[in-house]
Simulated scan of single mutants.
Amino acid sequence: MAEMTMIQALNTALKEEMERDENVFLMGEDIREMGSTFGVTTGLYKIWPDRVINTPLAEAGTANMCVGAALYGKRPVFEIMFADFSTLIYDAIVNQASKMRYMSHGKVCCPVVFRGPQGAGGGIGAHHSQTVDSWFMNAPGLKMVEPSTPQDAYGLMKASIRDNNPVLFWEHKALYRVPGDVQTGEDQIVPIGKAKVCKEGTDITVVAGQLMLMRIFKLLPELEKAGISIELIDPRTIKPFDYETVEASVRKTGRLLMVAEGCREGNWTADIASNIGETCYNALKGPVRRLGAIDSPIPYATAELFMIPSEDSIAKTIKEMVK
């Protein structure tokens, strides 16, 4: 076991998978000498100069090249410099990669990973600080994962590269340099579609990931002092969602709060909340609650932090629900 940042954990996972399978290769802007914008691919081009490929500012063309390569047996990992730019490759993801298995009657698969940083925390404005996961929830055929810790980043990246379906892998830029213990090896692969119960409790179930999860961890001493016992769940995979774990928790606590960084309007939490409301209706002591960002473009600099759920707003909502 070693202490790593999420950047180092992702780099280690990519390196190990490229060593394991010669069909794995990387494409993206500035991913060779520069090691990508945040350093995730640092040094890999020195080992595999022909499998770490710099691309021009032509995301749509590059993404479709990756889809084509995947159809011919390769396992490309395409880095989107910022997840916000996934709009430029939306057709490749939603109309091409996600539909290949269905359109071919299961004869071909499309094992491609689209990865990149999302979320606020860098103060870099409306085109670089968005949380994009909800944009893809209505597209069948995709898997979508969001690691919150270096350990999960390592295990989920390995699982995503090995999966025979297209995977969207969203990292959070504010967590890139947060260190954590990472155990490497085959037994540390995190299965896609399995949530993690980070803390057991009896009064309320709180589902949150990435930066929101970290904020709730900071609140635990305050809430425990107030006599509130939280069951905290990190979904890790947004699509397909682990309903079984959350439903079991809600039947125990009787309350559910979902906290996500993206805009509350049209957020993926709305779909989950609706389904939990149906399946756990008799167990709920009150309505399912959701917190999300204000329905507005994200402003520049530190003002962006006023847009997303704060520790104060999360604590206030939890106390209201339990009261």
Rank of each mutant, 00 (worst) to 15 (best):
G277T: 15
M307C: 15
E59A: 11
T149W: 02
M321V: 06
C198H: 08
N275I: 13
A9S: 04
H127D: 08
W170T: 06
K218S: 14
I89G: 06
R115G: 05
T253Y: 11
P117D: 00
R215T: 13
I80H: 08
A69D: 08
Q151M: 12
E19G: 07
A13H: 07
I238W: 00
Y281G: 08
G180M: 06
E59Q: 11
F114Q: 02
V132Y: 01
A9N: 03
I276R: 07
P287N: 10
A69I: 06
S148P: 04
M212L: 05
E244R: 11
R264L: 15
A315V: 11
Y72Q: 12
P49K: 01
M214R: 15
K173D: 05
Y72E: 13
C109K: 10
I204N: 12
E265K: 14
A226Q: 14
I216E: 06
I189N: 10
Y281H: 14
N282C: 04
Y176G: 02
I192P: 11
G292T: 03
A9D: 04
R75K: 15
G201Y: 13
I233R: 09
Y281Q: 09
D312K: 14
D242P: 08
D312R: 12
K323F: 06
C263I: 13
K143Q: 13
L57N: 06
M307G: 05
V178M: 14
S129D: 00
I272W: 07
I161A: 11
G193T: 03
A226D: 15
A69M: 12
I204T: 12
M258N: 04
E186A: 13
N138W: 01
G28T: 09
V206Q: 12
I272R: 14
G262P: 07
I47R: 15
M100G: 03
F136P: 03
R251T: 05
M157A: 05
A226W: 07
F78N: 04
I272F: 05
F114H: 02
T87Q: 03
K143I: 02
K194Q: 15
N165W: 05
Y90H: 08
C263G: 08
L175S: 02
V322S: 02
